[in-house]
Amino acid sequence: MTGSAILFYALGAVILSATGFAITRRNMVHAVVSLIISFLGTAVLFSLLGAPFLAILEVVIYAGAIMVLFLFVIMMLRPEQSSVRHSFLRGWGPGLLVAGAFLVSLTLIFFRGHLSSNPLEIATVMPAVFGRIVFQKHWLAVEIISFLLLVALVAAIQLGRGKEDEKGEDTV
């Protein structure tokens, strides 16, 4: 087993345990902080799989921007812990159903052997090459994404303004 294989399995363990820890917390701040660890592990995994630019973006966008946005909203709304205890089966029934389907498909992937013929070789894409191909081959998609972000920005502002009252002042 090579060093990068050991690194891969260690990162996989970190990602899975941090994510599993995150989705079981009742305190949401703990969940978000644990998820940041999971995303940092994913960033290192990206750089191991030959995408250093995406690794940086993962840290900046996911672990930085998105998780900080979650933290802001959690701290702004101060969501109370739900006082109603739902019955076990309401939540976990569909969860267990999906778990069964997932295990079947995972076993199929693993034992088909088609995708596991030869190990991945180490190859790295430099950010300069990456950027050149993005803007040569996929410039239209870049424009569409920028338009999507603009629409999301307008929607977020419009939703966040709240209803205007009779005097025409924002009730924010």
Partner: peptide
């Protein structure tokens, strides 16, 4: 050489 692609798929799954 890192790992088999199937292992990456299993992790993602």
């Amino acid at each position: 050489m890192i790992v088999l692609y199937g292992h990456v798929l299993v992790l993602a799954g």
